[in-house]
């Protein structure tokens, strides 16, 4: 199997001197294509920090991140933005849709950045809305969608760019149990059908139950790494 994510001795500190906290301490991990991985651990264990470093949203104090074989530390700001746009889909805890754009425009936005032709954009938006069960709601702005519906739009947006990896930070934290399960089923289905790689940072047992791999973090270090 091919590694789509590889981290080597990732070190990330916050604060300085007496207030210094080591969020990640020499973390090395390899994630293969098509894995449905959950990074779990108590609050402050470094889950989100690891996810941000993998996604190139933050820079490590030491160590490196390779995505599909490319060292993201060697990329310029614009190259990294382009890389994220084309290879990584993000889903955040707080939905994070652009409030002035409708659901379909939110999904279309990232494709527009990619320079996808208008006809294809429209077709993919339709497909994505169907996939996440939001047919007929494409014209609604986020304020007129429920939390679960907004998170589905966020999932659709993350997938619309056809990334290699989807990084999801507590995607079900603000959803009720039923909506969370439905959304996870959609993601699991995508993972199985399209062999898309998912990496979650979560406390949610529902995600852990569905994950094919669990990486346990404790005090910034990998305590256990188990494949089901």
């Amino acid at each position: 199997m091919t590694n789509v994510i590889e981290t080597k001795n990732l070190l990330r500190k916050f604060g300085s001197d007496e207030t210094e906290i080591i969020a990640l301490n020499k973390v090395s991990v390899e994630i293969e294509k098509g894995e449905f991985t959950a990074i779990i651990g108590p609050s402050g264990s470094g889950k989100t920090t690891l996810l941000h470093l993998i996604g190139g949203l933050d820079e490590p104090d030491d160590g490196s991140v390779f995505l599909s074989g490319a060292n993201i530390a060697e990329m310029s700001g614009n190259e990294l933005s382009d890389f994220r746009r084309d290879h990584i889909g993000f889903i955040f805890q707080a939905y994070n849709l652009i409030p002035v754009l409708s659901a379909q425009e939110n999904i279309e936005y990232i494709m527009l950045l990619q320079g996808v032709p208008a006809a294809e954009r429209k077709s993919r938006v339709g497909d994505m809305l169907n996939l996440v069960g939001l047919e007929g709601l494409g014209d609604r702005r986020p304020a007129h969608l429920s939390g679960g519906q907004q998170q589905r739009v966020a999932v659709a947006r993350a997938m619309a760019s056809q990334p290699d990896i989807i990084l999801a930070d507590e995607p079900t934290a603000n959803l009720d149990s039923k909506t969370g399960i439905a959304l996870l089923d959609v993601m699991r289905e995508l993972n199985e059908k399209q062999n898309m790689t998912f990496v979650f940072s979560t406390h949610d047992q529902k995600i852990m139950d569905r994950a094919t791999r669990l990486i346990h973090l404790e005090d910034g270090a990998i305590e256990k790494d188990e494949r089901k």
Binding site: G55, L57, G77, R85, I88, F92, I110
Partner: peptide
């Protein structure tokens, strides 16, 4: 926050 998210999903500084 929105700009942060926009940048995270691939919007370039330009």
């Amino acid at each position: 926050y929105e700009f942060g998210v926009s940048k995270a999903i691939g919007t370039t500084p330009f």
